[in-house]
């Protein structure tokens, strides 16, 4: 399998506005401290870590919504680390993102059809009503939803629209940032099954960011564990769950709630 992403020694720091002096630049807060890994195409990579471990920042760097401060990211053999926005734009249809909060990831003033057609139109791809209907079919929503507004949809339905918007571009890579954390358990399962099916059918590569390890275990082939902006573990899912190497991973695993409470406790 060819490598879709090759990340080496990735550093990313952001200005810390809370400690900005009155004059002069804010001190920079280092969020990613030298990450190196690869994502082979076709893989489903889980990225886990506690709050503030840098997992969302890493995701946004991968699809270049953030620019790394040092190191390099290459996508399908192309160095995209410091590519300017104008050169990134034609590439954007090749890596897409599904967002965490289905409430705020859809423009409340646009109908579903416009939301899905937006990126398609910008990329100069087919955005006819037939194409939109197709995209809705793919995520299992009725075609009549094209005329609806986001406030008329449930959380799970909105998240499906978010997925439809991303996959309509037929990207090679999709980043899913905590996409089920805002949903109830039954919608979570539906959305995960849908995503897993789509990734398999369309042959996409997926990076799945989550703090929920049981979700990662079900979906992912490999797991990247982050702590304080560093990789503490990077191995196949089975290995991580059965033989965790890092202390931090064992801690995370210990925090998974068990579906079957201790019999003696009852």
């Amino acid at each position: 399998m060819a490598e879709l992403y090759t990340v080496s020694d990735l550093h990313l720091s952001l200005p810390d506005m809370t400690r900005k002096p009155l004059l002069g630049a804010a001190p920079r807060l280092e969020i990613l401290k030298g990450l190196s890994f690869t994502i082979p195409s076709g893989e489903i990579l889980g990225i886990v870590g506690g709050s503030g471990s840098g997992k969302s920042t890493l995701g946004r760097a991968l699809i270049r919504l953030l620019e790394p401060t040092a190191g390099s990211i290459s996508f399908a053999g192309l160095d995209i680390t410091h590519l300017p926005e104008s050169r990134l734009r034609p590439l954007r249809c090749r890596f897409q993102m599904i967002f965490q909060d289905p409430m705020s990831s859809l423009n409340p003033r646009q109908q579903v059809a416009q939301i899905i057609a937006g990126p398609l139109g910008v990329q100069g791809l087919d955005h006819s009503p037939a194409r939109i209907a197709d995209a809705l079919d793919q995520v299992g929503l009725p075609r009549s939803f094209a005329q609806r507004y986001p406030h008329e949809l449930s959380g799970g339905q909105r998240q499906r629209i978010g997925i439809a918007r991303a996959i309509a571009l037929k990207p090679e890579f999709i980043l899913a940032d905590e996409i089920v954390s805002g949903l109830d358990v039954s919608s979570q399962a539906q959305i995960l099954n849908l995503l897993a099916g789509l990734v398999k059918d369309l042959g996409m590569t997926l990076a799945f960011i989550s703090h929920d390890l049981s979700v990662i275990r079900r979906l992912c082939t490999r797991v990247l564990v982050l702590q304080h902006g560093r990789i503490v573990e990077n191995a196949a899912t089975e290995q991580v769950f059965n033989y965790p190497q890092a202390e931090y991973t064992r801690e995370l695993l210990g925090s998974i709630p068990l579906p079957d409470p201790d019999q003696a406790w009852l």
Partner: peptide, 14 residues
């Protein structure tokens, strides 16, 4: 700061 603006950026809007 809303995610739909980020989504528009990820979609390649100027």
């Amino acid at each position: 700061k809303r995610e739909f603006v980020e989504a528009a950026r990820a979609g390649g809007m100027t």
